[in-house]
Computed example of a mutant assay.
Amino acid sequence: MLDWEVERDVVQANVVNHTGASGFSRLAKQAFFEGIVKPEVFVIVDDFIGQGGTIANLRGHIQQQGGLVLCATTLTGKPHSAYLHQRPEQLIELRNKHGQLEEWWKERFGFGFECLTASESRYLINTETGERIRDRIEAADTEQ
């Protein structure tokens, strides 16, 4: 109806099996994307949003290559994931509670807590200790 061009050259490069996965599994198994992005404006459309990581990772891939993401939308999802961008006070709360974990996080995932979605940050804030986060993410690597 809108006669918009569909980008077919950018694809998810790995299988993450997020359907029915725990929050730690979703965090551990990040979606990676391949494909050359034209310096254009994009609208991201996904079928479902759990914690928002896949959309955030696709946005990062597009922006690293000079594209601009105007907005993202999904067909369905978790109500607490309707807002992707974490609030500044949420990032401060996460760093105050689990800041000792951020260097490990950067080494493992290639980005800091500032790149997390609001839902991802909420999930980590609600976890008792940084050790539990690290243990659960490392354990998720062995999940099928």
Rank of each mutant, 00 (worst) to 15 (best):
Y123I: 03
A56D: 11
C71S: 13
D135A: 11
L91I: 14
Q51L: 14
Q51F: 11
L58F: 08
L91R: 07
E40P: 14
L94S: 02
G66F: 14
H85N: 12
Y83P: 02
Q63W: 05
E93M: 01
F48S: 02
T129F: 08
E128Q: 11
G67H: 13
G60Q: 13
Y123N: 08
E5N: 07
Q30M: 09
D141H: 08
H61L: 10
P39M: 02
G35N: 07
E131V: 14
E34H: 09
G66R: 09
H85K: 08
T54Y: 05
H85S: 13
R132T: 02
N96Y: 01
I125E: 04
L124G: 01
F111H: 12
N126E: 13
A140S: 15
E40M: 06
E89C: 06
V43K: 14
T142E: 10
D135M: 09
A13V: 13
A139R: 12
P79F: 06
T117A: 01
P88K: 07
L94E: 03
G99Q: 05
E89V: 06
Q12R: 10
G20H: 00
A31G: 05
V37W: 06
L75G: 09
P88F: 00
A28D: 02
P79C: 00
D9Y: 06
A118N: 10
T54H: 15
R122K: 11
Q65R: 15
P39Y: 15
P79H: 12
R87N: 15
T117N: 00
G23C: 00
A139V: 01
G50P: 13
W104G: 01
Q86I: 02
I92W: 01
E103D: 05
L58C: 09
A31Q: 04
E102I: 10
G23T: 03
Q64S: 08
P79L: 02
G60R: 10
A82W: 14
A31V: 07
L94N: 01
A118D: 14
E7K: 10
F32G: 05
E7T: 14
R26S: 08
A140K: 08
R26D: 04
K38Q: 09
G66T: 11
V69S: 11
P79I: 00
I133V: 01
R26G: 03
R134C: 08
L94K: 00
T54Q: 13
